[in-house]
Amino acid sequence: MKKTFILTFLISCCLVRFSVFAQGILTAAAFFQTVSAEYGKIEDYEADVSIKAAKKVMEGRVSFKRPDLLRIDFSKPENQVICFNGDLLTIYLPESAAILNQNVQSSGTGNAANLATAQGLSLMSRYYSVAYESGQEPVALDEGSNEMVVKLVLSRRNTSEAFRYINLAVQPETKLIRRIEAITPQNEKFQFDFSNYSLNQGISDQRFIYDPPTSANNYNNFLFTEQ
């Protein structure tokens, strides 16, 4: 009887210790859901954004309003603008004095700029599997950086997705996305860095109505124009 009691006691202690340990484990999928839930509370936001692609760096201020209104006013290149009003994508290229217009029927994970939204995160959870890059504990954003983030690696479930991998760096306290790295099947990388967020400021729809300079040349449906 005494041995049975001691054995039962030891097993109970082990189970309690394991339960406490397990409560401290947050799977990558569960952490991703907390990020998605946080973005579900956001009606609009503005943030500084830096975009790196093909060794080119662009900088500006991004504005977003649910469900899919988006605008980026660039300081580098100066005066360049990208604006999406839900139906029409407009890109103003001041260096070329060109206005590119494209009717867009839908948006999804094929557009890296849309990933930092509730809709983009929902699509990612559906079409990508989620894992920690190095564990659930925050790590340095870059080598030698004092900024700590949780890093996730998303791998596409099928080959129809535009990006083979999507790497996310998330601020652990706010659950806001600090960096997105989207890698195509051709190993092209698009990096988006977000900082200085302003959330739920009541941005007007007028913010997403862009009137480009009348002196610029218009190119409509440029994505499907034959060269």
Rank of each mutant, 00 (worst) to 15 (best):
K56S: 06
E95T: 04
E95C: 09
G60M: 06
Y45N: 03
R61L: 06
Y39K: 09
E46T: 05
E43Q: 14
I82C: 06
S50M: 08
L69D: 13
K76T: 15
V62S: 00
A53D: 07
V35E: 00
I99M: 07
G86F: 03
K52E: 10
F64D: 14
E95Y: 05
R66Q: 00
V62P: 01
Y45G: 02
N79D: 07
K52T: 14
I99V: 11
V57Q: 13
S63F: 03
R66K: 06
P67A: 11
A28E: 08
I82D: 11
Q23K: 10
G40L: 11
L89I: 09
A30N: 02
K55A: 03
L70F: 13
S96K: 08
L93E: 01
V49W: 11
F64A: 08
S63V: 03
L89Y: 11
S75D: 09
A29R: 00
G60I: 02
I72Y: 06
L26C: 08
L88C: 13
L89R: 07
I42S: 05
F84E: 01
I42F: 05
L93H: 12
Y39N: 13
M58C: 10
K55V: 01
D48R: 11
P67N: 08
V62F: 01
S50A: 14
A97M: 14
R71Q: 13
E78H: 14
T27D: 06
G40T: 10
I25A: 15
S50F: 10
M58V: 03
V62W: 02
S63D: 04
A29L: 00
P67Q: 09
A47R: 03
G86Y: 02
I91W: 01
F84Y: 15
T34S: 12
P67T: 15
F84M: 12
I72R: 12
G40S: 12
I25T: 15
D68V: 07
A98M: 14
G40V: 01
Y39F: 14
Y39S: 11
A47Q: 10
P67G: 09
I91K: 02
A47P: 09
L88F: 12
R66I: 10
F64Q: 10
I91N: 05
K52G: 05
K52M: 05
Q80N: 08
G86C: 03
C83P: 13
L26D: 08
I51P: 08
D44E: 04
A47W: 07
M58K: 15
C83E: 07
L26Y: 03
I25Q: 15
F84I: 04
K55Y: 04
Y92D: 02
K41I: 00
A53K: 13
C83Y: 08
P94R: 01
N79V: 14
E95L: 15
R61V: 13
P67K: 10
V49C: 13
Y92V: 00
G86N: 02
L89S: 04
F84A: 09
S36K: 07
M58H: 10
Y45I: 04
K56F: 00
L26H: 12
I99Y: 11
R71T: 03
K52L: 05
S36Y: 05
N85R: 14
D44F: 01
T90V: 06
R66W: 05
G86A: 07
R61P: 14
Y39H: 05
E43T: 11
T34G: 04
Y39R: 14
N85I: 05
Q33K: 08
T90Y: 08
